[in-house]
Design a protein around this nucleic acid. Sequence first.
RNA 1: GCCCGGAUGGCGGAAUGGUAGACGCUGCGGACUUAAAAUCCGUUCCUUGCAAAAGGGUGAGGGUUCGAGUCCCUCUCCGGGCACCA
Length: 975
Amino acid sequence: MATECKDYEPATIEARWQDYWATEKTFRAVNFSDKPRYYVLDMFPYPSGTGLHVGHPLGYIATDVFARYKRMRNFNVLHPMGFDAFGLPAEQFAVEHGVHPRVTTEKNIENMVRQLKRLGLSYDWDRAVATTDPGYYKWTQWIFLQLYNSWFDPDANRARPIAELIDLLEAEKLLVSADRRSLAPGTASEPATPKAPATRHSWNELSASEQREVLARHRLAYIAEVPVNWCPALGTVLANEEVTNDGRSERGNHPVYQRPLKQWMLRITAYARRLEDDLALVDWPQPIKLMQHNWIGRSEGALVEFSLEASDAPALSVFTTRPDTLFGATYMVLAPEHPLVDTLTTPEQREAVTAYQAKAAARTERERQAEDKTKTGVFTGAFAVNPVNNERIPVWIADYVLTGYGTGAIMAVPAHDERDFEFAKQFELPIRAVVMPDDTWLRDQAAKLPGEVAGAIEHLRSTYAENPSEFPNAFTGEGVNLNSANDEVSLNDRPSGEARAAITAWLESKGLGRAQVQYKLRDWLFSRQRYWGEPFPILHGPDGEIVPVEEKDLPVELPEMEDFRPDGSDDPNAAPRPPLGRAPESWRCVERDGVRYQRELNTMPQWAGSCWYYLRFCDPGNDERFVDTDAESYWMSAGNAEGQARNGGVDLYVGGAEHAVLHLLYARFWHKVLYDLGHVSSPEPFGRLFNQGYIQAYYYEDERGARVPAEDVVDQDGRPAEQVQDEPGRRFFHDGKPVIQQYGKMGKSLKNAVTPDHVCEEDGADALRTYLMFLGPLEAMKTWNTQGIEGISRFLKRVWREFIDRDGNRNPRILEGPETNPEILRVLHQTIKKVGEDVEGLRLNTAVSQMMIFVNHLQKADTFSIDTGKAFLRLLAPFAPHLAEELWERLGERPSVCRAPWPEHDPAMLETETVKVVFQVNGKYRGDAQVGKTADRETVLAAAKEQPKVAAQLEGKTVRKVIYVPGRILNIVAS
RNA sequence: GCCCGGAUGGCGGAAUGGUAGACGCUGCGGACUUAAAAUCCGUUCCUUGCAAAAGGGUGAGGGUUCGAGUCCCUCUCCGGGCACCA
């Protein structure tokens, strides 16, 4: 069985055991077992053409160590791997090389599987999935239809089948508002009177197309014409999450333009509250929770109605977090795209307004950024009425107010909002103080003024109250109100919080406003104008009706096409034309009951497939369902065993932090919908999340700033750069020309990738695995240093020699029978304890250190017991599994060591007769001694005073105090 | 600008408020060898000192404590996220 190697030959040993694991299916996970379950998941990769570099498997190896450990702890472990294979790069590569994306994708997957297997990762390969398999994306389409056929019931705070909404509407338990945008409870429609036209309608009075419109406004998947991020260079639209903060595409860094387009949207905003609240249910790194928290962007405030002076216009609704400053609202601003702009603009101002709107539309986000600072805007000519004091205030438009947030309109309180303050100064609008700042703020501000407004604090206060515009900044903090009273309510002298509550209550009583929670999160733009993605299971009828493809007709497969290129363009005004528009007519057109339907021509974004793959792994071959209910619940429901997810979801999910608001937010949203509809058993998909850090490496740039391959760089003595990169005084050259050493994330673009294949060949997979774990804390950024692996290689060779002599036989130093060397016994049990605890906490670097310490002890002993050897091999097995298997069998055990139980440490073995107590004088180390475990203070103090160093320090001093921590330290305070 | 995270030898890093630098890399010295590689032994924070030893030292400055890398305050630098979100 085992190899015949005399020396440690990783290549031979590793090939042998990888073969064994594959044949024996050692890592097969079975659904249902008496053992407790454990689900360990990696974020599955995109199978790129360049394959893996050593940074990629960092997380995979960590989860592998953990999965192997958990198996030895008697868990039934699910540890799968798959491929997120739809998406732009495959398509772009395919276009460049004229090959079908399916061909390149399959080739890339094959190569990546080979690389991963070479690392000895203990995946259950029988469960591997690719999002591009029709058998997989059938269910991605099915889940989309679940979204399409559901609505979010705000009262139940969950999704429900759309059929239930229709029932409620038909029974007139819900009525439709006049604009058909919202629903309200009611038992009968209010009869219309000449004075008050009906505000609500019964569903049954609506036409079929009106009914469709009502439903569309509530479905979780819907088509809407909204301003979207259009990227002409990529020929597709992008989600907010895919656009960088300077208005460019995250992929490719192309300019992105805002333009209104009809697109598929997913109503993720309905879940804003639960996505926020349920972060409390999961064990995730705090920074990731914070990033999601910020992205969701909950803010509490009030919705306030401002009536317009022109009586026929509807009221202007604004959202504010500071209703307490309402008395300071001296003008209003609408976003240039606000729907009411046209209605309320006066003829005199129309030209200026239209010009401003055109200018705003033409500017990209990036241009808005660049101009920054200076506020622009135009007066519409209209006036609104401030509901608290009936003051007539002008209505402006300006691009500092965004369409997509709140109502797209604001009340401007220039005294207490920095942006409004700037705008008001720019256009000489009135600024009224309604909150008195604290004295510190007033003094700080006075200090910034050129003249001397300074003086007594009373003077500053009265100046502020009368003329806040004399100060350089707006006061945006909280304080006590002033200038804030009408006949019915006064906020004066009340603190901001109280003022907010008071004015909100007043507004509510008057029907002028109400408390409101607002989210920054927007609906998820879900269609892309690309070929290589999941087709929508949707048909469009001749009258514009939308018909979902029936479940039995799924999947809607991608058509075979010769030319699948996107219609990219540099012209931001060119209309998007999805490649599927050029698909054969036989695919595009479907006839049902004599009606000709057109297939939806957009495809889903790359994130779709990754939103639910962790569920498919529970039951990957199922043709009947996306996942078997029992299998899902076995792997995903809440668990009580050691380390299992308390509230359900994947027990351990490891991946990079770059997915904080994309994949992780989208997947949570889909999961919650499936949960609401009763398809999954846990409220959250990922119970425990861990972010591994990046691997960084040196890279080299020539004088033009172009990167050169790091592997070809040498120093002034002609030695390869990778061997001398940390030595001082090195200068680097490529092709004889000087280059500069830099430092950054390992990857193709910096030309500093080191492949695992290369390292496996040189040192073996076991060395690479152990080295990557040893490098530092899993979550930290780490530097790849090829030299460092040498230490791990030596360690593994040493392990080999401890067990195998030069003739390839069992080392005669290994004795039968239990361990007799107390020193070895003690260190062994220390090691069992520390390695177990460290692996459990993913502190894999210190676990490796401890194993090294153990082997250093072993090496110094003349002999050791076979029991000791076997215990150690089990600790080593998760890290260096091939070597552990080989030695395990050579010690006469049956493979596989993966199935051997994890050793238990005996606390009694860690106890010693005496303990070391450190002696300090005035907090400084002056010696130590072994003392009895129960030694009392006086005994230890006496022992300390006997030590010459301690005595010398005490000479001529009086002992003031003695601190004794039993078994640890004795500190004598003397002066 | 706001919000997170970080800073420890030549390098990666380790340290329940209790001997800072475990473990490893590199460097230096030695053994084995005709020689080299491999392996093994020793050594490697800084300053003074032949040594024994003493003093200093965890980005900077202050504080709490018998005792601070660790806790608190202020600042500097680096990394990440968000950014006219009303």
